[in-house]
């Protein structure tokens, strides 16, 4: 159990002269609750895209549980337990809530390549999907198309689909983005209740959520790590106050 859940070594990504990631050495402990914060355009989402394989790094390495995954496809990384959610809800909008989650479970179990039997015959998968919706308060809306649900509820489905994949490492890209204040409470609760063995890295602008959940915080500025440490240290760091907290909090 010595290997880190997730690690990047000297991760770099440039688009011409623009560096969205420069020499990022990042460590995510097993079972961690780790927040990645930074001003707009700091490269937070690019970092998630690099780690999950949407973008190919210019140089550097990505290790998942000690294994080098730098050259693996997106799907291969998911199969190894690296799962993400999206900043802007990316769901199958016309499909029902239950179907959204069932699709994820079908991929996890590898039955999605079956083109002979009806999907309804894989009943255990549907039951598992339903049971996953219950604690998230989504069961009552299981048969409704996603598009009919309020945005805050859709954010919960994002999390439900990620959990359906049984992740070892979960990357939450602004889980509360675009959600009205009255609904953020439910999302924070859900994140706090995530199974302890999942290492969670979340990007967030909502400082209430960050300081309530995170055990460690990494501050990213212009594609580079400015500082990393426990929340109390980050809150007191003058550099952080200057570039980040100063803009919004004080």
């Amino acid at each position: 159990m010595t290997a880190l859940a997730l690690e990047t070594k000297s991760l770099c990504k440039t688009f011409g002269a623009l560096a969205v990631a420069s020499d990022i050495n990042f460590k995510l402990e097993r079972g961690a609750r780790h927040a990645l914060i930074g001003p707009n355009g700091a490269g937070k989402t690019s970092f998630v895209n690099l780690v999950t394989g949407v973008l190919a790094p210019t140089s550097g390495q990505i290790l998942l549980g000690g294994e080098d995954i730098t050259s693996l496809t997106r799907a291969q990384r998911v199969k190894r337990g690296l799962v993400r959610t999206f900043q802007i809800s990316a769901l199958f909008k016309k499909l029902t809530v239950l179907e959204n989650v069932t699709l994820a479970i079908a991929e996890r179990e590898g039955v999605a390549n079956d083109l002979l039997r009806p999907a309804g015959h894989h009943r255990a998968l549907i039951e598992e999907a339903y049971d996953l919706l219950v604690p998230l308060g989504l069961a009552t809306e299981a048969l409704r198309p996603v598009t009919e649900l309020a945005y805050g509820r859709q954010r919960m489905i994002e999390i439900a689909m990620a959990l359906a994949l049984k992740p070892k490492v979960l990357l939450l890209d602004e889980p509360a983005a675009g959600v009205p204040p009255i609904e953020t409470g439910a999302i924070i609760d859900t994140i706090e209740k995530l199974p302890a063995d999942i290492a969670v890295l979340f990007i967030e602008h909502d400082m209430e959520l960050v300081f309530r959940v995170a055990q460690r915080i990494t501050v990213l500025v212009q594609g580079a790590v400015l500082v990393e440490g426990p929340p109390a240290q980050i809150a007191d760091d003058p550099k952080v106050r200057e570039v980040y907290l100063g803009e919004s909090k004080h």
Partner: peptide, 29 residues
């Protein structure tokens, strides 16, 4: 009809609805 209602067919619907999401749940799109 068999294909459309199979898990494979449902995953095709997923690809139509949101290709990025299919990648993110580990589908070989």
């Amino acid at each position: 009809r068999n294909i459309v209602y199979s898990p494979f067919g449902r995953s095709l619907t997923g690809i139509r609805e949101n290709t990025n999401r299919m990648h993110a749940i580990g589908a070989p799109v």
